[in-house]
């Protein structure tokens, strides 16, 4: 296969294989109704060749985290009052905008949830992929188009040559997501963020897209951040998992142990709410209640109104993310008890 290895360009070299370091990130939105604290101190790291899944319900802040890393939050209303996002040791948040913009695409890249609306409806898909090469590499039209074709073949679009001049709406959902992936990996980014890449697709296509992402990630040794609300889709591809709730990480662990023994009641609730074939006829256990309003996050642990374990201490003290077992981090006062069950 003719592809270049995804090594960051000379300006950016990973420190000990560490690509991305998010430290105590805060994001808030200043709205008419008050300040919505979407992210309240999130820290994680990403190494080359590693897949990190960020899991959470709608409104848990996972997409905002992605947008903050990409630097595509609209500010205002968004504001990043504290925190650092270091790419290869350099803080993206303090970088001049022009320099930061040049990291988008060749260094850090992103795939969106709904590939139909993420592709410009007025241009053929080949043109849109080729634009990446013309924009960042200054390639001429025919070279860029050839590269686009190569990428379309790489993401397994059948009859790519005939379809290079088709418009986005002429493709199926899965094919559109492949095109979006082609655009995102065009410049061999070291970090790829996939924001719910399979949510808008049907189940058979979901697996294909996940496998494609996984293959590309191994092939290029990218660091992949997979944002999802679906525990099922990440099981096979993720190395580590970070669970978000109300703008905080509530659990962080390697992928396998978390499925077997969650260390946070919220993760446990998420796992229990996956329909399973061996529980046919039984009531599906959903997590009662709704995620909190970000304008009024409950005192203490944000999950306390929905938690079956909630005690007085949960209404009073905010649990910090602590290592409850080797490699297992949980932000719950009763993490050990949850882990034992």
């Amino acid at each position: 296969m003719n592809h270049e290895q995804a090594t960051p360009t000379a300006a950016y070299q990973p420190v000990n294989g560490r690509l991305l370091e998010v430290e105590d990130l805060h994001v808030e939105f200043h709205t008419r109704d008050g300040v919505a604290r979407a992210i309240n101190g999130v820290s994680f790291t990403l190494d080359a060749g590693e897949t990190l899944a960020i899991l959470g319900e709608s409104g848990s802040g996972k997409s905002v985290t992605a947008q903050a890393i990409m630097g595509i939050l609209d500010m205002p209303p968004a504001k990043i009052p504290a925190g650092a996002i270091r790419y290869c040791g350099q803080d993206l948040l303090t970088m001049p905008e022009e320099q930061r913009r040049k990291t988008r695409g060749p260094e850090i890249s992103m795939i969106f949830q709904d590939a139909l609306s993420s592709l410009n409806p007025v241009f053929p898909v080949g043109w849109q992929i080729a634009e990446m090469f013309r924009m960042h590499r200054g390639m001429n039209k025919s070279d860029a188009k050839e590269q686009a074709l190569r990428l379309m073949q790489r993401v397994q679009i059948p009859a790519a040559k005939e379809r290079i001049n088709s418009y986005p709406h002429q493709f199926s959902g899965g094919m559109r997501q492949r095109i979006m992936i082609a655009m995102a990996i065009a410049l061999d980014p070291a970090v790829l963020i996939a924001d719910e890449p399979t949510t808008a697709l049907d189940v058979t296509v979901q697996a294909q897209i996940m496998n494609l992402l996984h293959d590309l990630q191994e092939e290029r040794q990218m660091g992949l951040i997979l944002i999802t609300h679906d525990l099922g889709v990440v099981a096979d591809v993720a190395d580590r998992i970070a669970v978000m709730y109300a703008g905080r990480l509530v659990e962080k662990a390697d992928i396998l142990p978390i499925y077997a023994h969650p260390a946070h009641p919220y993760t446990k609730g998420l796992l229990d709410s996956i329909p399973r074939l061996d529980q046919k006829g039984q009531t599906l256990r959903a997590i009662a209640g709704l995620p909190p309003n970000l304008l009024r996050i409950p005192e203490g642990c944000a999950f306390n109104p929905r938690c079956y374990l909630a005690q007085d201490v949960c209404h009073r003290d905010l649990p910090s993310l602590r290592e409850v077992a080797p490699g297992r981090w949980s932000a719950c006062h009763f993490a050990e008890e949850v882990l034992d069950v």
Binding site: I72, M110, S117, L119, M135, H136, M183
Partner: peptide
């Protein structure tokens, strides 16, 4: 797609 374009530099 406007967001995506920004995210792709």
């Amino acid at each position: 797609y406007v967001q995506a374009a920004r995210a792709l530099g």
